[in-house]
């Protein structure tokens, strides 16, 4: 008997492990475009951290002798209307972009997840009330909502984050609610109830961890959108303003000199495009690597 069991175990070991990680890595890193996105993102983060070391000039330094200089060896991307070095402003501009992007998503994800979780788990009238409010919030165009909030609270990075954060809550709440409704139906939730676990225990220990992958994917994909909106708000003059460096306001400051000094708008424009593209590609890659079935739903 003992010998037989031993044999059985050995047999068990011989099965090749169906490693989820291996599949994930193969799909995720197997795509060149995802790899490209990852590299770009890593570069952006590194540049943001070491901006002080990399930037050739102080990004706030006004130099009225050198207003609107064309790109040269001295100023690689030229200078703006106040004579500030465009390259340095571009480098420092990464910081607000990344901060706004991640902080906004953090707020939206936390609030949205909690709301969606409660709505989905308890169902009934609780779900009806929460989801109707979310639907109402969703009825406003996101940019308009952010504009209104920013107009009420005033400009500046903090308010931008709040405005965009609130505007992004519905996306997360809806996905979380749908996820909860699906996960709730699994036998392991009923099993948990039959073992005497409380609702909170089940929600935090079993539903949230299982809903995590789609949420992470959603967050990655939404950071790009938030960055784009922040740029839009800054472009409209509501977001981060000079002398602080923000790509949106840089584009807006330079767009009427597009013919004489194209770099003023084009350089921040490309910077925005590149990060949004990278984020979307990484998000897509994550989605397909984690669960190909999510394609089309996220």
């Amino acid at each position: 008997m003992k010998q037989r069991r031993k044999r059985q175990e050995k047999f068990m070991e011989e099965r090749p492990p169906m490693s989820g990680w291996r599949r994930f890595a193969r799909v995720f890193f197997g795509r060149k475009v995802v790899l490209f996105g990852l590299i770009v993102l890593a570069l952006y983060v590194l540049i943001a951290i070491f901006a002080d070391l990399i930037a050739p000039y102080d990004y706030k330094q006004i130099n009225l002798q050198q207003v609107l200089a064309q790109p040269s060896g001295e100023h690689l991307l030229g200078t703006d209307t106040a004579g500030r070095d465009v390259l340095s402003r571009l480098i420092y501009g990464i910081r607000p972009t990344l901060i706004v992007g991640s902080a906004t998503i953090l707020i939206a994800a936390v609030c949205g997840t909690i709301l969606g979780l409660i709505a989905g788990y308890f169902g009934g009238w609780i779900q009806t009330i929460i989801m109707r409010c979310i639907d109402a919030l969703m009825g406003f165009p996101m940019l308009l909502l952010a504009l209104v909030i920013a107009a009420v609270l005033g400009g500046g990075m903090k308010n931008i984050i709040i405005a965009l954060g609130v505007a992004s809550i519905p996306t997360f709440a809806r996905v979380m609610c749908a996820q909860t409704l699906i996960i709730k139906e699994n036998d392991y939730i009923i099993a948990g109830r039959s073992l005497g676990f409380t609702n909170w225990h089940l929600m935090w220990n079993h539903i949230v961890p299982n809903a995590f992958p789609p949420l992470v994917i959603l967050a990655t994909m939404n950071i790009g959108m938030v960055i784009l909106m922040e740029a839009g708000l800054s472009f409209l003059g509501i977001g981060i303003q000079a002398p602080d460096a923000a790509w949106g306001s840089m584009v807006s400051a330079g767009y009427n000199r597009l013919t004489s000094n194209p770099m003023l708008s084009v350089a921040p424009g490309i910077a925005i495009m590149l990060i949004v593209f990278s984020l979307n590609m990484v998000g897509d890659g994550l989605r397909d690597a984690v669960d190909p079935r999510l394609r089309g739903t996220l």
Binding site: D187, A191, S194, L195, G196
Partner: peptide
């Protein structure tokens, strides 16, 4: 409930 759990 804990005294009579379920197997599925």
């Amino acid at each position: 409930r804990r005294k009579m759990p379920l197997i599925f």
